[in-house]
Structures are given as structure tokens and as C-alpha cells.
Amino acid sequence: MKKSISVVAIAALLAVGTAFTTKSQTGGWWNVYNPIAGKTPGIYFGTADQIKGIWCPGDNNVICAYLISNTSVVIKKP
């Protein structure tokens, strides 16, 4: 019983801690691609595909990916 309580308590603590950390990071990061008017810029976390999906659209002129299957293609925005 005590072990179960300990495990649940630790899990809850880690979940709260993770949420706290993520929230703080979002507020402190500088998002160079999609600054939100009137708000502190934030950054997005995710897998490489998610990051690419979020970061590639927009008006900045950066290379997002270099496709090497079949023919070589550079994906650049816009």
C-alpha cells in the first residue's frame, strides 16, 4: 500500500514538474519565426517532423530540409 502511494506521489510530482518546466521554457524562448503580436515570443517543442511542420511555413527564408530520395530537392521557405 505504502509503495503504491509512493509511486503515485512520485509520478504526480514528475508530471507537475514537467508541466512547470515546459511552461517556463515556452515563456522564455525566442521564436524567430512566428513572433506573436503583443506577447513574449515562444518556441515549440516536438519531434523533427512536428518541428519541420511548424517551422517551415512562414516568411523567413531558411532551408528546412534537403530531400535526398529520388532527386535532390531543397525545401526552403517561403
Binding site: 523533427a48 518541428i51 519541420k52 531558411v62 528546412c64 534537403y66 530531400l67 530520395s69 525545401i75
Partner: peptide, 21 residues
């Protein structure tokens, strides 16, 4: 290199922290 649905691509696997915008 990231593989996605048969397509291989070099892309960023960490956030791209731009320094000189």
C-alpha cells in the same frame, strides 16, 4: 537524416536556434 513515408531528408532534429536573423 529523417525518414518519413519512404522519403529521406536531412533536416533539423533539434530546435533551430537562429542567432543572426
Amino acid at each position: 537524416i529523417v525518414n518519413n513515408s519512404g522519403t529521406a531528408a536531412y533536416t533539423n532534429v533539434t530546435p533551430a536556434n537562429m542567432i543572426n536573423r
